[in-house]
Nucleic acid binder design. Sequence first.
DNA 1: ACTGCTAATGCACACGTGTGCAAACATCCA
DNA 2: TGGATGTTTGCACACGTGTGCATTAGCAGT
Lengths: 371, 371
Amino acid sequence: MNSSHSPLAAARVAGAKRSREVSIADIARVAGVSHTTVSRALRDSPLISEETRKRIQQLALEMGYTPNAIAQSLQTRRTNTIGLAVTSIADPFLSEVVRGIEEVARSAGLSVFLSATHNDPEQEIAVIETFHRRRVDGILVASSRMTGEYKQRLDQIRIPTVLINSQAESQYELLHWVAVDDVLGARLAVEHLLALGHRAIGYVGTSSRPRSCRQRLEGYRAALADAGLTPREEWVTMMRAEEASPQEDVLCGRRALQRLLDAGVTAVFCQNDMMAIGLLMACYRRGIAVPRELSVAGFDDIEMASCIIPPLTTVRQPRLELGRLAMQVLLDLLHEQEGHNHVLTPTLVVRESTAPPLASSDALPPSTTTE
Amino acid sequence: MNSSHSPLAAARVAGAKRSREVSIADIARVAGVSHTTVSRALRDSPLISEETRKRIQQLALEMGYTPNAIAQSLQTRRTNTIGLAVTSIADPFLSEVVRGIEEVARSAGLSVFLSATHNDPEQEIAVIETFHRRRVDGILVASSRMTGEYKQRLDQIRIPTVLINSQAESQYELLHWVAVDDVLGARLAVEHLLALGHRAIGYVGTSSRPRSCRQRLEGYRAALADAGLTPREEWVTMMRAEEASPQEDVLCGRRALQRLLDAGVTAVFCQNDMMAIGLLMACYRRGIAVPRELSVAGFDDIEMASCIIPPLTTVRQPRLELGRLAMQVLLDLLHEQEGHNHVLTPTLVVRESTAPPLASSDALPPSTTTE
DNA sequence: ACTGCTAATGCACACGTGTGCAAACATCCA
DNA sequence: TGGATGTTTGCACACGTGTGCATTAGCAGT
């Protein structure tokens, strides 16, 4: 009958330095009931009388009780946690995707572990390993190359997984995925350039994202073919890259300009916006007017695309939607429902980096079906 | 003596559908020892003989054992987890900061929970609450306003916390922080404009980040004062905003142009790069040449600043460093060491959006110390 | 008063891991 | 051979929460 006047004061004193948090056992002791009753009362179990429940909930509040999610997870075998692996956190394409994911996850009561893989197979495996150790309920992987070992790993641990715009060349039936139609997107961009009157249209891609590069190249080729054109070999410039970082992409675009000019193109379709921006910068440096002398189109429609001068014509990926949908599919899987794969439709956003070619541009001999 | 030929096969069968993961108890059973021995062997305890340890580690590998971090956390009272609260995930300023944080965290064996608060007090509290429930070892808060209730909450739960570029007007001695010197940064930018010959220099700020706005305004005023100038009231345009999102900032910049032109300034210093970019876009629309007719300087040096045309003169915040350092301070706190607060020094990055004013610009009467 | 029924509560165990302490065993020395 | 010392192992408990089952209390009906 000396110290603690109220449970509240007791909690304060207990939490003075670095001591334990208030547990249901503590509440039980104060309330004079078993920890079982407290547990049930806090979870609104119908087994507990209205009166007891109210009393205990009030007490929990006064004592500053915060449930221990760790202990709950151990018991229920659910952590209400997901792992999100991205290639690069600073990737402007991913920012909105991650935003969509976190938004949906949080409204479903899930917390998100974020980890970067830097497009490096070894780190990818380490990240998955960590997620597994932490017993996440599900995993999302964005824009990753999927090396064989990685896939094998994911396969073994049997955690529901959804891939977003996977760069793996082969799909695996065990994994689910959400992606944007790259072939269609590329078609839209190239058809736009064709409609403006361009005939010599270049392509710039990078080896750091092999799948989207291949698919977009395919769309590019298909659009040209439909117009009765076959691209010259030198129109297609493939840049070597490893890291898949924005800086690297800009550099690729910048370095590609000379080769494209040498190839004599009047328009360029870039694998993504960052490369297009690199290209624009190089044009600015060399005094080449865009779009008057050279038309440039990108892919992704990142924030920057609309902020740059001239505003970039590009293919819009519904990035926020992509993230939301991926998380939604994962939620379905977590609820033991069947998960469906989705292909989202990109749209063309015409801005000011594309225009009809200069009349002089047909100094270049038209390269129609040389086949 | 019927089914499982090897521990490996046994594990495979066990993990067939949705059954339990392999635990140390399982390994113990197979190895014919107690779970205690397995626990010690896997942790390289000196209590275990070399031979037993090797045997058990080998067995663990074969059985596909992955330690349960949840159970470990419950026992050791450490989750090796931190919570990172940001205002907006898509904020280009934060991308590099988050990258630095995750990098250091991961190399220290910590996983990162990411959550967005949208600059909303209610959500901020909810996020902190969740972090607490999950028993994170530490918390990082980036660019947040710190409402009283929020602070009180953080204060109660006594989890080591580090603030990054906090927007709270008052600092609390309990919390640690890392920040960039806003006053100095603003000085650098404005002194640069002064050195170019500008006398009528405008400022654009937003109410969504009150502290950095106030500090940068202070630096702006100080630089002008040192040059013997007092800014006219209409040179300082304050935009109302709530969300603290990039889109919102761009809009603020865009809408500020007219007011600045009316005020007759020849150069503008913006609270951040996104606002400067909005301003540039507005200039582009109105056919105002930057930097010939109007000089524009920003703050932050986000990726976009160097990619835009014209490349933006701005004040560089060491963003990656900021993230790394904040995480480092948090690590110190986690290791029971004293945490030190840090003020980082920004630097001026002169690019191409600033130039001397047109000769005609002094049609505007010089407004020297009207005081 | 006894039975049968419902409502409310507690016991005991589970989840998977770490660790203090005791016990068993081996080794060495006198 | 006995005792001292050192090495290796296991028992039992702890961490905080959830839940099946038994137990108790309360109440109505005969």
